[in-house]
Structures are given as structure tokens and as C-alpha cells.
Design a protein around this nucleic acid. Structure first.
Lengths: 344, 344
DNA sequence: GAACCGGCGTGTATCGATATAGTGAGGACG
DNA sequence: CGTCCTCACTATATCGATACACGCCGGTTC
């Protein structure tokens, strides 16, 4: 391996001058820089990041920890984050946590070990208390899975409001028997005035709120998060005494599975049942029928994540902020009543 | 930051003993180990990976470099790779190369800088010559984008054979006017006896081969790799003097776009046109119509990648291997002729 | 012409973990 | 009883880049 010292010897200067010529941290005469650059090129020198980060205490890399890459939402989110950080001059690596407490702890550990300068994490398994404790040791931004209490930098999704809008859409389109797919039992939400908990529970709160106000029937089907789970839920829905005529899925991925599962039993969307999802992943435009969905402001999410993390790395003592992004209801074919019209 | 030296001082032993107690590299008496462990716990010590890897020259991390995470195929591939490496006891980080030469060079650079012990890369932008040169400095496994010549460890997809099977299916289902979406102009393949080049070109070769043999009409539409590109291609296909009745898309993602684009113009799949894709991403099962596709043996791909990389890290001088995995034709609704039947 | 200064470089200590050589205590053995 | 060995541990050098303190030199300024 060719080291900086080798370059220095070869070029007849000190290692420090090579370092300065390369990083530009301190001025070097044009002639010397030229000489150094040529020598670097000739010997094929490359800095050793391990040595550099040991000395500097920084790596210039931020970690992105998501539950899984095998997901429409998280793979698209990761992609957007990587791009945004790269524009901000920061390299990124993506880790999967498998939505587990252990995986999330591992992501924090990797950060603490100085492998990353900061961490963006979509935390599902850790408790708020744990996150708070860990966030004191590492610059971290939490992405909107839970309702937190201003103790850590946090980008929230408009979970309750979005779910309300989605549900309201179904009601406005004339549905009388609603279902929510991916929610805990609605009875469990009973008596909770201020919605709290993980994202899906918040969405369920939004759903329940509108259901109450409008007086329609509603059932809930709890399940996993995959398309397969969605398809399974569709079967469950069809087994109920009264088949719903409007379904709100807490994610688009579930919605795809539900639509498919309904089709497997000859039930058509939107002719027989209206379906609306949440997240507005790219695929929502391309499915048949295209899927109506709640579109959180994706650009705002990543912009805020980048900004908050940069700020916290620069000043670890800064006051934590909690930012909630806006959303848009994007109506597509899956909620067009027979004879109705679609926008977009 | 609490260092190993701090732990050593606190416990009244030497740093080396702490190191040995933690790594188990050399024997330490049970009593001393106990003492060290307690002290580590009490002070909250964590090893510094930068220092460790500077000393050892290894990190225990392998890099996975894919063009983009915003892709059905690559996000699912990344997920599988991460899982497989984790089962093999290796940590992984995922990088996006944006399908660019620069991005791929960056992935190699990160590896060479000792950030990774090895690299799995789906290389699109680099030439075979460049890959060969770089592969001498880093343990690397290339994932099947190009036809390489046994100079580097390589896991290949059954591109030609898969494309042939897909095309043959369309012919068997009675199509007379075929189209391939995502291929370079078919004329460019003229006169090349042994198929070579990037994956999509290989698939085009397979397509062309079957077209020749069966004497059906065929056109090609070159385009990007996204669903939007697929939808655009659909418009182009419909503008042709004779609309094709069978379309082979070089990826499932393109196929989703094509099906959607056709639907936008009132053309139905499979009633009016049959469509078959390549990759068998999970979504193929859940779209409506579900998509017939060529399913390369995904598990074999990642297993081979893990094995080859582990072998090369252990022995950098090992003879390079080129492994081609098997495939299966999965027929679904998108190629069911009116009155025909579907399997699976 | 003495004192001072800024631009350019150098020499060396340092980051934290670990490989290697070395130390000393205790036991086995002839 | 002396030699040799093992075991458990310590001391020190090392990995490669860089922060820091300093030295040198030509040019200003009074």
C-alpha cells in the first residue's frame, strides 16, 4: 500500500505538505502542489480513511437506517435521502434494521463507534425513552414513525390528518361500510383523546375520527406490512357478513395487496369497492387501477432530515425540533365511482 | 470518549489485556476477564472501529454497490444480499452508483480505502478493462450486468436464455408482431455471432434469435429503465403502423410502465396485447394483470455472491470464477390468451 | 539596519487498538 | 537445586494521516 509518507519521500517534501496539498486545509505554493499531485498520480496514492477518521474523529459519512429495503416506501425514501445528502456533500450508507430493536440498536452502535458522523433512522422497535438516551451520544434525526415529545430532532408525517383526508374521500364518494387495513383493533383506540403511538396507530386514529363524525360502519383488519399481507386481508374482508365498499389501507404496499386479493375473488376496484392508500409511492401511478393515495411531501421530508442532521452535527447541543411535513390527497382511479371522474 | 486505555487504568490492567479479554484473541484468566467486563460495562466503553481497522487493515464490512435503490429489482436484490451477508456474519452497507462510471469508481475507491473488506457491485458504467484493473486491488464480485471473460469473480444472469424463453412464450401464445422494449435497435446486433455486451443487449440477442427462428415480425423500442419510460414506450408502440400483439420488456419495471401506458390508450393486457417481463420482482404477482416474467434464481445469485466474495477475501489470488444461475419462466395473467389458461 | 511579518514548509506528537517481544511467577523434571 | 517451560500479563512499537508548534526566508516599515 502506498502511503502519504511514500508520496512525500518521492516528491521530496514532508508528509504534511502532501496532506495540505491534497486537502487544501493550509496554503501550499502552486509549484509544490503541482509536484505533489503528479507524484500522487504516478504512485497511485489513495488516502486511508481509517487513519484519517481516527485522527480527525469524523468520517464524513452519515448512516441511514431503515426497516427494510424490500419495501416501496423505504427503498424510495432511502434513494431520496442518499441523493439529498450527496447534494449536501455527505456520503451515505444504508443499513437495514429489520424493524427490530436489535437492528436499530446496531445502527446506533455503528454510529457511536465513529463509523458515521450522524444517523437518520426510521425507528420502529425502540421506545421513545431509548431513543432519547441514545440520541445524546450521536447526532441523530428520527423519521416519523412515532409521536415523540420534542426531545430529539424529528421529521413527522401528517399521519392523523392524512388518514382523515383519505377516509373523508371514501365517505364523500358514497361509501357506507368502511374498512381499515393494517390498523390495530379500533376498540383499542377507544378513549384516547390525543392520538399517540406508532404511525399506523396514528393513521387509525385519523380513520376512526372521520368514521365517528360521519356515522358510517367500520371494521379493522390487523396484519403485516407486505403485499402478501394485503392480499390476505382482502380475503378476510370478503368473509365478513357485510363486505365493505370502501377500504383505507395504512400503506400503499398493503393497498396493492388488497386490490390484488379482491381481484382474485372477482371483486373489482373501483367498481365494487373503493380503495385508498397512504405514502404515494411511485408505483401508485402505474398500477391498474392507479391508486389514490395520501402523498406526504417527500421532498420536504428529506430536506428537513438533511438540514436537521447537519445542524445537529454542527451543534450537538441545539434545541431539538419536531417538523411535520404537509401532504396532498392524490385521487386516482381506485376511488373513481362508476360515472365519476378522476383527476391526474 | 472513553477509550480502552481508560478501561485498563480503571481496572488496573494493561490495555492489551482489555483487548484480549474483549476479542478473546489470546487467553485471559477468568477472574481478570470478569473484572474487565465489569469495568467496560460501568464506563460504557465501545471499541473505536477507526482505530481497530487502521491497525488491522480490515473492517468486517462489505460494500454493496447498486445503480439505484429506487428500482424494484435492485432494492429487492440489495435486501437479499444484506440478509445473506448478515447470515454469513458480515456487516454490509449499500451504496448507490447512479449507474454512472463516477459512482462505480467511487464504490471501488471506498473499498480500496479500507472502508470495506470487499465489494459486490452491479457495474453498468465501467468497462471490462477498468473492472479488471480495479479488481486486482480489492476483493470484488461483479453481479451480472455484462458478459465478462473469466477475469474477475462474476455471477451472471441467464440473459440470453431467459429472453429466448420469454420470446418463445409469446410466439407459442400466437403472437405475430413482436416488440422488445428497452433494447438497442435490433439492426445493431446484426452479424454478432456470440452475444456480448451489457445485460439488456444480451436479452435483445435472445429475443432476436427466437424472432429469426420463428419468422415473426419484430420491432424494438429503446428507452430508459423506469416505469415512466415504459409508459412512454407504450405510446410509441401504438403509433407504429402495425400495433404489436406481443411485447417482451427487458425488465419487469419497464413492463409495468408498458402495461399502464397501453391501458391509458384503451389497449388491454392480455386481451389485446400479451406482455412478458424479466426479473420476476415481487410486484409481478400483485399487479393486475399479474405479470409473466423470467425468474432468475434469486437465492442462487446472492448465495454465489456471498460465497465468491468470502473466498476471494480469504484468498485474493484464487482463480476467478464465472457462475451463471438458472431461471424459471413464470407465466401469469399477462400472457394468458383469451380462452387460455394460467398456471400459478 | 533592526525589528517585524506573512507565506511556506518541516518535525513530531497524537488519535485508539493491537501485534510482538518480553517479564516474572509458578510448576515440572532430571 | 538448577533448568526449562507455561501461563498470565505488560511495555512498546506500529498502523497512516494530521494538528500543532515552530523555523526559515524574503520583503516592509520606521
Amino acid at each position: 500500500m502506498v502511503t502519504m509518507r511514500d508520496v512525500a519521500t518521492e516528491a521530496g517534501v514532508s508528509p504534511m505538505t502532501v496532506s495540505n496539498a491534497l486537502t487544501g486545509r493550509r496554503p501550499v505554493s502552486a509549484r509544490t502542489r503541482q509536484l505533489v499531485m503528479e507524484t500522487v498520480e504516478r504512485l497511485g496514492y489513495q488516502v486511508n480513511v481509517a487513519a484519517r477518521s481516527l485522527r480527525q474523529g469524523r468520517t464524513g459519512v452519515v448512516g441511514i437506517a431503515v426497516p427494510t429495503l424490500d419495501s416501496h416506501y423505504y427503498s424510495q425514501l432511502s434513494h431520496r435521502l442518499v441523493r439529498a445528502f450527496s447534494q449536501a456533500g455527505l456520503a451515505t450508507v444504508v443499513e437495514e434494521t429489520h424493524a427490530s430493536r436489535e437492528g436499530e440498536l446496531a445502527a446506533f452502535r455503528d454510529s457511536r463507534l465513529n463509523a458515521y458522523d450522524g444517523l437518520v433512522i426510521a425507528a420502529l422497535g425502540l421506545t421513545e425513552r431509548e431513543i432519547n438516551a441514545l440520541s445524546r451520544e450521536v447526532p441523530v434525526v428520527v423519521l416519523g414513525e412515532q409521536e415523540l415529545h420534542q426531545t430529539v430532532d424529528h421529521v413527522s408525517m401528517p399521519n392523523v390528518e392524512g388518514a382523515q383526508a383519505a377516509t373523508r374521500l371514501l365517505v364523500e364518494r358514497g361509501c357506507h361500510r368502511l374498512a381499515i387495513v393494517g390498523s390495530p383493533p379500533l376498540d383499542d383506540l377507544e378513549g384516547i383523546a390525543i392520538p399517540e403511538g406508532p404511525a399506523f396507530t396514528l393513521r387509525a386514529h385519523g380513520f376512526r375520527h372521520v368514521v365517528r363524525d360521519s356515522g358510517v360502519d367500520a371494521t379493522a383488519v390487523h396484519c403485516g406490512v407486505t403485499q402478501a399481507a394485503g392480499a390476505h386481508c382482502a380475503r378476510l374482508l370478503l368473509q365478513q357478513p357485510e363486505t365493505p365498499d370502501g377500504v383505507f389501507c395504512v400503506t400503499d404496499t398493503l393497498a396493492f395487496g388488497v386490490v390484488r386479493g379482491l381481484a382474485d375473488h372477482g371483486v373489482r376496484v373501483p367498481d365494487d369497492v373503493l380503495v385508498v392508500g397512504f405514502d404515494d409511492v411511485e408505483d401508485a401511478r402505474y398500477h391498474i387501477p392507479s391508486l389514490s393515495s395520501i402523498a406526504p411531501d417527500h421532498e420536504a421530508i428529506v430536506d428537513q432530515a438533511v438540514q436537521l442532521l447537519a445542524r445537529r452535527i454542527a451543534d450537538p447541543t441545539a434545541e431539538p425540533r419536531d417538523v411535520t411535513v404537509g401532504f396532498e390527497l392524490v385521487e386516482r382511479e381506485s376511488t373513481v365511482c362508476p360515472g365519476g371522474q378522476v383527476q391526474g
